[in-house]
Amino acid sequence: MNARALLSKARIVEAAAVVADRGGVGAVSMRSVAAELGVEAMSLYHHVANKSALLDALADWAFDQISAPEVDAPWRSAMVGRARSARSVLVRHPWALGMIEARPRPGTPLLRHFDRVYGCLLNSGFSPELATHMFSALDAYIYGFALTESTLPFAPAEGAENSFAEDVAPSPDEYPHLARALEGLMSGGTYSFADEFDVGLDLLLEGFERRLAQAS
């Protein structure tokens, strides 16, 4: 059986994700995806209408990789699980940062995901307004952290932060506060920037926990 006979929309979108992982979303085209699959570009049009539809489907694919909370789950643990899942997906697929919520036609995965997040928060006593504040703040934090991780000037590895800090160590005379902070962080030899994610997430959720208690 030839490659064209095995084509499906799911296979096409998965190939588009491979192309995007390798060259960014700008590298995704009907031609590049067809080449990834070993078929002619025209074969894709039997399953995907055009490039815009392919990008819509790719955005849906990315959102589908993120774990959505159960609507009857405890809200704080549910938001932690979702945040960690989203960060993991966005670090593995940095191209998704700029497109999963930017497509002009929201797909079913995005709407279903949003519905479950709101369901979890509303069922836990959040007002629509406070739930929206939570959703907005969390996503800004998750996306911002993932973007920072994807642009760090060193590859994630044990001791990478310490090596980098040693290479760019600031002069204590010129930058006394920065030098003091770095010395404190790196003196134990176990600091990892990745650990900051859960620290910041806890601080953020603690703030909303207080707001929820005040509103009750």
Rank of each mutant, 00 (worst) to 15 (best):
S163N: 08
N162A: 15
E158H: 10
M79Y: 02
V89Q: 06
N123S: 13
L185R: 12
R84E: 13
E149Y: 00
Y141S: 09
T148C: 11
P94Q: 02
L110C: 02
T190C: 00
A102N: 14
S192P: 00
V89H: 10
A137L: 09
A78R: 04
S124T: 02
L97Q: 09
E129C: 05
R112Y: 03
P74C: 05
H177Q: 14
A165N: 02
E149I: 05
R105L: 09
V168A: 05
S124A: 15
P172H: 06
F126V: 07
Q65P: 06
E149D: 08
M186D: 04
S127F: 07
P170M: 07
F164S: 03
L97F: 05
L178M: 12
M79G: 02
R112S: 15
L138D: 03
D139Q: 11
P109E: 04
T148N: 08
E166V: 01
G144E: 12
A169M: 14
S77W: 05
S192K: 12
S88T: 08
M99I: 14
A83W: 03
H113R: 13
L90F: 14
A96Y: 09
T190M: 03
E129W: 05
A83H: 07
M99W: 08
E161T: 02
G125N: 02
P74H: 03
L152G: 05
W75E: 09
S77V: 13
S77L: 10
S171H: 07
D64W: 00
S187I: 10
Y141C: 07
A86K: 11
Y143I: 10
G98Y: 11
A83Q: 07
F114N: 13
E174H: 14
I66P: 11
L122T: 10
A155K: 00
T108L: 12
P170V: 02
F126C: 01
L97T: 00
L121S: 04
G107N: 03
P106K: 07
A181F: 13
L111Q: 14
A160S: 02
Y191A: 03
A140Q: 10
